[in-house]
Amino acid sequence: MEVRTIKVFTTVDNINLHTQVVDMSMTYGQQFGPTYLDGADVTKIKPHNSHEGKTFYVLPNDDTLRVEAFEYYHTTDPSFLGRYMSALNHTKKWKYPQVNGLTSIKWADNNCYLATALLTLQQIELKFNPPALQDAYYRARAGEAANFCALILAYCNKTVGELGDVRETMSYLFQHANLDSCKRVLNVVCKTCGQQQTTLKGVEAVMYMGTLSYEQFKKGVQIPCTCGKQATKYLVQQESPFVMMSAPPAQYELKHGTFTCASEYTGNYQCGHYKHITSKETLYCIDGALLTKSSEYKGPITDVFYKENSYTTTIK
């Protein structure tokens, strides 16, 4: 009895394709271990004539594949690729409408935090270190965002349907971005203890939790000093293409032309909904596939993004 075979390709990165001759009487799992086709788990399936010449994702289970996976995804987590594939199996079914010149995501599976993050990423200057993220990001900007969303979920250790947080998501993504040249110098002034300067680099240099107003941050924000008295913390120097200011959701007025974009969060910790506000020729609110415009805006804002380049204080 002759062994019926077909020729397929296996890959971990969709760049390096490895030619395989597979036995049609055995499952993919018996031949390769966990195997995925377009995100779908085909591990328990036997090869079919229609699979001839198709590319299958496999887990990096030998040295060659491990090197290829690390170079593309910059992670050695053995569960990463499987999590990416199972997320992709959902995100490829989502709709990605162009809204006001940006790629958004039609609401499904509690994905409003991903839509808000995706919209924000198209408006701030950011370059990702893992080629996987950078490639998928370019495709997302062009309207094909399924891979990018699935990668975000995998890097953030999230599953489809789980509630997510924009600030946490951005923080994970910033860790995989090139923020080497970003720098922030802060000064804390206390009447009792004097003053202390701190220099922050990388992710810490672009994120701040405690106030939404970048102007206020430049002037000074009140913080408790270690001595128990009130101290003032203010920005001395900022070198970065953008800054992200966050605070627990509270009524906040966004003035046209003073910011790049913002995240609105309605609801409580267990259950809520994100919308995205962007400042173009007027203010726009993007909620999944829905767009509304207004000249002014007041609502429960939790993150505001500002364009920056270089700032030095005039406070002496």
Rank of each mutant, 00 (worst) to 15 (best):
K280E: 14
Y57R: 05
D109A: 06
K293Q: 15
V304E: 01
N309G: 13
K201S: 14
A247Y: 02
L254K: 02
T211M: 08
A205F: 02
A247V: 04
Y284F: 12
R66V: 11
D135S: 09
M1I: 01
E308K: 07
Y28S: 06
Q134W: 03
G299E: 03
G194E: 00
T258E: 15
T5K: 14
T169F: 02
S279L: 00
D109G: 03
I223H: 14
D13R: 06
H273W: 01
R4C: 15
D180L: 06
M26Q: 09
Y36Q: 05
N61V: 12
G220V: 02
A262F: 00
A136T: 08
N309A: 11
E162S: 08
D63Y: 09
V42R: 06
E239Y: 09
L173R: 04
N100V: 06
V8S: 05
A205I: 00
Y138M: 15
G194K: 07
T76C: 14
S310M: 15
Y57D: 05
T10G: 06
V42Q: 13
G272D: 01
V166W: 02
Y36S: 05
T258M: 11
D287T: 03
P131D: 02
M24Q: 14
W107K: 01
Q123S: 08
K95C: 15
Y306D: 01
D63L: 07
D135C: 07
N14F: 07
L212K: 01
G164F: 04
V3Q: 13
K54Q: 14
L153E: 02
T116R: 03
V243S: 01
C225A: 00
H51S: 06
T55K: 09
L212W: 00
I15V: 12
C193A: 02
H256G: 11
I223Y: 11
K280P: 01
Y137L: 12
F9W: 12
D41P: 14
S25M: 12
Q216F: 05
L65T: 14
E253C: 08
Q197S: 12
F56E: 01
S25G: 11
A231S: 06
K46T: 11
M85E: 01
Q134I: 11
L235R: 02
P248E: 09
V166R: 01
P34E: 15
T211R: 05
A140F: 10
Q134P: 04
K255H: 10
Q31L: 14
T64S: 12
C261S: 02
H18P: 00
F242N: 00
A87Y: 05
I105K: 04
Q123P: 03
D62G: 08
Q222D: 15
D77H: 05
A115Y: 02
